[in-house]
Design a binder for these strands. Structure first.
Length: 274
DNA sequence: GCGGCGACCTGTGCGC
DNA sequence: TGCGCACAGGTCGCCG
């Protein structure tokens, strides 16, 4: 999936395409992706006659702001949105279709069916799971060295799983955590309490930079991720370690290694990251 | 509270 | 060419 920068690119692209459109009909063909309300018929009915007023993002979640409701969408690993101006046959991996009054439509496509949708009354979305659980965005001012120090003091976990924990900071996924720790020269298995103030500052600063640069580049495009306008992110050309197993480390020229940390594939340079 | 694992799904790429 | 297997960007829930 799309991590924060990819979701942001999707948000911007969708805003250009579907803002102010009014929903005529919704078809859910994979009911278990709708988590709230539990009844998919009710979900479909609630959305009829609603106009897309705005589209927001919090962490990796997209929030479609409608007249009366907020639709919270998570793309998980491979979710994609496609906008069609005319009637378009349903792809075998399309699971939700939003048809608009003007004949255009928005298709949610997800090969692995991991994506989720929640529909809440306007204003309730931040009080309910999943949004209520999220920590600050890495690009928010609230994400500071001081904040991270506090969070890291409370735990004995290793730094990588902590950065992946969306209740600590919302938006890092496997790719950008590996990139951040490489740039900050920190080993992903370092225990949180062992990190010095200066090291935590470095992680926060590099993390913000990685995410900002990736947002400016429109995200990284790995295998299946696509923006709804078909454009592709450029950031993958600037990855230092993710997917670079065996290639020389840009710093010391020794090979980038791949290992597992907390069950997740992890790329690093054993010499440059301590 | 923590790590580890399976579950949720399908597709791809590899070795044989 | 075909088969079986490991693995994939995320998250949740269960277990010890």
């Amino acid at each position: 999936m799309p991590e924060l920068p990819e979701v942001d690119a999707v948000k911007e692209s969708l805003k250009k395409q579907i803002l102010n459109k009014t929903i005529r009909q919704v078809d859910v063909t994979w009911p278990s992706m709708v988590k709230h309300p539990e009844d998919r018929k009710r979900f479909e009915q609630m959305l009829v006659h609603q106009t897309i007023q705005d589209i927001d993002r919090k962490g990796k979640f997209l929030i479609f702001r409608l007249d009366d409701y907020a639709l919270v969408s998570h793309l998980r690993m491979e979710g994609k949105y496609f906008v069609y101006t005319e009637e378009e046959p349903k792809d075998k991996h399309t699971h939700v279709i939003f048809r608009f009054n003007d004949g255009s439509s928005l298709h949610y496509n997800d090969v692995r069916k991991f994506g989720t949708m929640h529909l809440f009354d306007n204003g309730r979305e931040h009080e309910e799971k999943p949004l209520s659980q999220l920590g600050p965005d890495p690009v928010e001012e609230h994400f500071t060295g001081e904040y991270m120090q506090k969070r890291l003091q409370k735990t004995t976990r290793r730094i990588k799983p902590v950065l992946l924990d969306q209740s600590v900071v919302a938006g890092f996924g496997n790719i950008y955590v590996d990139e951040t720790l490489y740039r900050a020269k920190i080993h992903p298995e370092r225990l949180s309490p062992s990190l010095s103030e200066e090291e935590v500052e470095r992680i926060v600063a590099e993390g913000k930079k990685v995410i900002r640069e990736a947002m400016e580049a429109g995200g990284s495009t790995i295998r299946s991720y696509a923006r709804s306008d078909g454009a592709q992110g450029e950031f993958q050309t600037r990855l230092f370690v993710y997917g670079k197993e065996g290639e020389p480390c840009p710093g010391c020229k020794r090979p980038i290694m791949k290992t597992k940390v907390g069950g997740r594939g992890t790329h690093l340079c054993y010499y440059c990251q301590e």
